[in-house]
C-alpha cells in the first residue's frame, strides 16, 4: 500500500503444524470397530423411536433427538449411492493408495444411512450409481474404519 516497501523482497517463514493428537473413539464407535476387528461383522445402532438404523454409528438419532439404545447387524452388501474418482494425487490420499482412487457412498442392506469408504477391484469407468457392492475386510485389523479394506462390485 505504501512506497516505503518498494523493492523489498518478500520473505517466507516456512513452518509445519504438527501437533500429536488423540481422538477417543467413544463407546459407540468402539463397539462398531471391535465388531469389525474381532468378528468381521458390521453392526449399527437403531433408534428406539423411529426405527432408523445409522451408519456410521452414532449415539443419538438426529431426527428424534433420543439416544439409540439397540444394536442390529446389517449386511456386508449394499447399494452405491454416489462415488468419486481421484485422478490427481491429492495430498489427502493415504500413501498406500494408488491412483485412480475411488470412493463410494454405500447404503448397506439393513441401514438407513450410507457410509463412505473406498471402492476397489473395479475399473473406475464401470462404477455406476445403484450398483451392488460388498465389503472386503482387511487381513490385518486394528479396530478402525480401515478394518474394512474396501467395497467391491457384487458379480
Amino acid at each position: 500500500m505504501s512506497d516505503i516497501f518498494k523493492g523489498i523482497e518478500p520473505l517466507i517463514y516456512e513452518s509445519k503444524i504438527n501437533v500429536p493428537y488423540s481422538w477417543w473413539a467413544g463407546d459407540t464407535a468402539s463397539k462398531f470397530f471391535i465388531n469389525l476387528r474381532d468378528e468381521k461383522k458390521i453392526i449399527a445402532p437403531r433408534c428406539g423411536s423411529c426405527g432408523k438404523v445409522f451408519l456410521p454409528p452414532r449415539k443419538v438419532c438426529p431426527a428424534c433427538f433420543t439416544e439409540n439404545t439397540e444394536w442390529v447387524s446389517v449386511s456386508d452388501e449394499g447399494t452405491l449411492v454416489s462415488y468419486s474418482v481421484a485422478r490427481r494425487k491429492l495430498a489427502s490420499i493415504p500413501a498406500d493408495k494408488k491412483l485412480p482412487v475411488v470412493w463410494g457412498l454405500v447404503k448397506l442392506d439393513g441401514a438407513d444411512t450410507a457410509i463412505l469408504h473406498f471402492l476397489d477391484d473395479v475399473d473406475p469407468g464401470d462404477v455406476k450409481i445403484g450398483m451392488r457392492v460388498k465389503a472386503v475386510f482387511a487381513e490385518q485389523r486394528t479396530g478402525g474404519i480401515r478394518d474394512i479394506s474396501h467395497f467391491k462390485p457384487v458379480r
Binding site: A29, V85, L116
Partner: peptide, 16 residues
C-alpha cells in the same frame, strides 16, 4: 474417527 483416514478432500467430496 470414521472418515478422515479415507483421504477425501473438498474436491473429491464435491465430485461425489
Amino acid at each position: 474417527i470414521y472418515e478422515r483416514g479415507l483421504g477425501m478432500d473438498m474436491i473429491s467430496a464435491c465430485a461425489m
